[in-house]
């Protein structure tokens, strides 16, 4: 059952990303082009995505356990460290450079051609290496 609902959630997520325009790099880069020809579409995407989740967190707070029995993940400690800030900074840089973030980078694989696979391959390789590289830069243990 867990797998069935994971497949379903991934599918709805993927189609939602395609419908919303998140796999269109011109729309993403237009959204980030705040000081130029700004495209507000992504505000509607983010707003639309947050609405159901506001309700979901309220339900989750009352139930504590999910329908399949596992505990609702506890809130993370509000630790603001260099890893969070440097990591998010790097992510924002790469998001602007190619116009894809991790979810859309996977949703686009069936129709983005070899270029999409090249981006995905580079992303996967650096995810593999993420436990080694940050230590050299920040001294922080991952």
């Amino acid at each position: 059952m867990r797998g069935v609902f994971a497949l379903l959630a991934g599918s709805v997520f993927g189609v939602g990303l395609s419908v919303s325009g998140m796999t269109d790099t011109a729309k993403v880069q237009g959204w980030l082009d705040l000081f130029g020809n700004w495209d507000p579409t992504l505000a509607f995407v983010l707003g639309g995505a947050i609405l159901p989740m506001l309700l979901a967190w309220r339900v989750a707070a009352r139930r504590q356990r999910s329908a399949l029995g596992s505990f609702i993940p506890a809130p993370s400690d509000p630790v603001i460290d260099r890893k969070l800030l440097i990591g998010s900074g790097l992510f924002g840089f790469g998001w602007a450079v190619a116009g894809l973030c991790p979810g859309p980078a996977m949703a686009v694989l069936s129709y983005g051609g070899a270029d999409a696979w090249l981006f995905f391959g580079a992303m996967a390789v650096s995810m593999l290496g993420h436990r080694i590289i940050p230590q050299m830069w920040t001294g922080a243990r991952t």
């Binding site: 959630a9 709805v12 939602g16 919303s20 995505a49 989740m53 596992s70």
Partner: peptide, 28 residues
Amino acid sequence: WTYGLIGGLMIGAAAAMYLLVNGRIMGA
């Protein structure tokens, strides 16, 4: 903007289902 909102609602619905049924945070 309309497609953005519809797609966004789907993304949020998927995240809500993954949280409330599977008990997981939907982070790609």
